[in-house]
Amino acid sequence: MLEDLSRPGFWQACEEQVVEARRLFARLIGADVDQVAVLPNASVAAHQAASGRRWRRRRDILTTAAEFPGIAHTWLNQPGARVRWVGSPGGAVRTGDYLSQITRRTGLVSVPAVTYRDAIRLDVARIADAAHDAGAAVFVDAYQAAGVMPLNVESLRCDYLVTGAGKYLLGLPGLAFLYVRHPDGPAPTLTGWLGRTDPHAMRATVLDSPPHARRYETGTPAAAAVYAAVAGLSVIGGLDLGQVRHHTQRLIAATAQRLAAQGEVVRLAGHVGAQGAHLALVEPHADVMAAWLGHRGVIAAPRSGVLRLAMHAYTTDADIDAACEAVAAYRCRARTRREGLR
């Protein structure tokens, strides 16, 4: 990116990177390139998917408290829509919770492919079949799935799918991808110069929309995030994600067993097929623990009472050893401090 930036015509080079990022992501999920829009984040993508819809007879949006807040907040902000929650208020959710709540009043079913906190993997295809039978569309947040397990939109049978270029796709924050099964539908309410049929015509007086997913795009993307997305997707696209899935599940099983032996409480799905690529270590002060571990080279994410430990394609057994040893050291330090205060 810096090399391109130092030469004339940087924007043209950046546009070529956007085209390549769109192509690589489409290939990753088994979509056509014209079904993919490049957007700044998943919240904007969710808005684009919902904003053109009319919430009249089918005004219910079915989602879960386990949904990432940025997605759920977008649904709550849809004028005329009514959000209905499945699963427990604390975020426990299973595939059957969705199946029992889909009705003829449901207009949109929002399903996280893997829940962001507890790493529960839901049966998206089964939920999508039930939703379509009732006449509802299906939105999938694949942020916790893309890059560590095979994803194919035809197999998932979803109408929309979103993920960010960061996390398992090895890119940076500031870029997201939105898949739209039928991109020639109603235009979204949020738009920008890149959402036009010919953006470079620069016609301020004309508001047209192309028949492909680029109608969902808005303004100039973050250049660094675009270049990083191409680099990350190039790596991920060269992997066998079935093998990556097997690798991460083996590491999660080993990590959970070791942490349990250390006296930790971890949250796991009921069976290995329903587990995402991270595990949740129960810790009321997860932010404090994450900061302490981070200073010792173990990067973990605190999320409302749990510490997320994520397994990537590149994670090794030595990484797991280091993480478990660091958790044990943190607990030892905490016990020593408590005893010193007595």
Rank of each mutant, 00 (worst) to 15 (best):
L5Y: 14
P8E: 02
G9C: 08
Q12R: 15
E16V: 02
E16D: 07
V18C: 12
V18G: 09
R23F: 06
L28H: 06
I29G: 08
A31G: 15
D32H: 15
A37W: 01
A37L: 04
V38K: 15
S43R: 13
V44I: 13
A50W: 12
S51R: 10
G52E: 01
R53P: 02
R53A: 07
R59F: 09
F68S: 11
A72E: 02
Q78I: 13
G80R: 13
G80N: 06
V86G: 01
S88V: 10
A92G: 13
R94Q: 07
D97G: 03
L99Q: 11
I102Q: 03
R104P: 00
R104F: 05
L108C: 05
V111A: 07
V114M: 05
Y116W: 09
R117D: 01
R117K: 10
R117L: 02
D118G: 06
A119K: 02
L122Y: 03
I127C: 05
D129V: 02
A134C: 03
A137L: 12
A137K: 13
A137S: 13
D141M: 10
A142I: 07
Q144Y: 08
A145S: 12
M149L: 12
L151Q: 04
V153Y: 12
Y160L: 05
V162E: 07
T163Q: 08
G166D: 12
L169K: 10
L170A: 10
G174M: 11
L175R: 13
L178K: 15
G185L: 01
G185K: 08
T189F: 15
T191H: 12
T191A: 05
G192T: 08
G192M: 03
L194R: 15
P199K: 09
A201H: 13
R203T: 12
V206I: 13
V206S: 12
D208N: 08
S209G: 11
P211W: 04
R214M: 02
E217S: 03
G219L: 00
V230R: 13
L233R: 08
G237W: 04
L239A: 00
D240M: 04
L241W: 13
Q243S: 15
V244W: 04
V244S: 03
H246W: 08
H247W: 03
T248Q: 01
R250G: 05
T255A: 10
R258G: 09
A260Q: 10
A261C: 07
G263P: 12
E264T: 03
V266M: 03
A269S: 14
A277L: 04
L279S: 01
A280R: 04
A280H: 04
L281T: 08
E283Q: 10
A286F: 00
A286Y: 00
A291H: 14
L293E: 00
G294T: 06
H295R: 14
R296Q: 02
G297T: 09
V298Q: 14
V298H: 15
I299T: 12
A310S: 14
M311G: 04
A313Q: 10
A313G: 11
Y314C: 01
T315R: 09
T316D: 01
D319R: 06
D319S: 04
D321G: 09
A323F: 07
C324M: 01
A326G: 11
V327S: 06
R331G: 05
C332V: 10
R335C: 07
R335E: 01
R337V: 03
R337W: 07
R337D: 07
